[in-house]
């Protein structure tokens, strides 16, 4: 057996990579959401959280590089698998009667739109934020930056759209990954299915709440 082939070339190897990288990304998405929700605790809390993350540059960069690797592996395996899938059915059916869920049929599209959002989002808030102001304690004023960005309906709208699609992506992805990793058998399958649904709703409610609140006037005192 050629180990490189068994992991990076075989169908099951690529699914395993996609599942593992997806699981790591889910971990990040949940942590990110919980961190961000601190915005509702006020300017002081969220700015302190930002400063806290920046206070450990080594850990921060390790996490960033790890995430970048996961995103890379996830997208590479997604595109490789989808291309093989398309090639496997060159002639389409005249009548299609799909029993597959909407989320499972549109993984590549929800994924690609989320990807384009991630790129935009990084430039907006991390790489080249327009607003570089500091608060009274001299920390980057994340609170004001977020309120400023989400006061633009387009920026808030893209955030809401992307997170809705991410929630849909995960409502399927978070159950499918456990099959890819060989864990969904018997009653566990039903647990993972319920868990994925709960996760999807959590991501939707948690992440969409921030731009929605800003659009409804939350934080306008800093504008």
């Amino acid at each position: 057996m050629n180990i490189y082939h068994a992991i990076f070339r075989s169908s099951l190897g690529k699914k395993f990579i996609m599942g593992l990288s997806g699981l790591a990304l889910v971990g990040f998405v949940v942590g990110h959401m919980v961190g961000n929700l601190q915005i509702f605790l006020g300017q002081e809390k969220i700015n302190a959280y930002g400063a806290f993350l920046k206070s450990m540059p080594k850990l921060l960069w390790a996490a960033r590089i790890g995430l970048l690797a996961c995103v890379g592996l996830h997208i590479w395996s997604a595109i490789a698998l989808v291309r093989e899938n398309r090639r496997a059915r060159p002639v389409a059916y005249q009548v299609t009667r799909s029993t597959a869920s909407f989320a499972s049929r549109t993984m590549i599209w929800s994924g690609l739109i989320v990807l384009s959002f991630i790129v935009y989002h990084l430039f907006d808030f991390t790489i080249t934020p327009e607003f570089k102001g500091v608060d009274e304690s001299g920390r980057h004023d994340i609170y004001k930056m977020v309120i400023l960005s989400f006061s633009h309906p387009l920026s808030a709208g893209f955030y809401i759209l992307a997170n809705t699609l991410l929630a849909i992506h995960l409502s399927h992805g978070f159950q499918s990954l456990f099959q890819s990793l060989g864990l969904s058998t018997g009653r566990f399958r039903h647990w993972f299915q319920s868990l994925a649904l709960v996760l999807g709703w959590l991501i939707f409610v948690g992440n969409v709440s921030i731009p929605t609140a800003v659009l409804l006037g939350f934080g306008k005192e800093v504008l």
Binding site: A88, S104, G182, S184
Partner: peptide, 28 residues
């Protein structure tokens, strides 16, 4: 040249012998 599983469950639904998706998990 077969494609890859996306865990849509269509196979299990169409199988005349009701083979369970669990076997794919087991194979993985």
């Amino acid at each position: 040249g077969f494609g890859n599983c996306t865990v849509t469950g269509s196979c299990e639904a169409a199988c005349p012998k009701e083979i369970s998706l669990d076997f794919i998990s087991r194979m993985n």
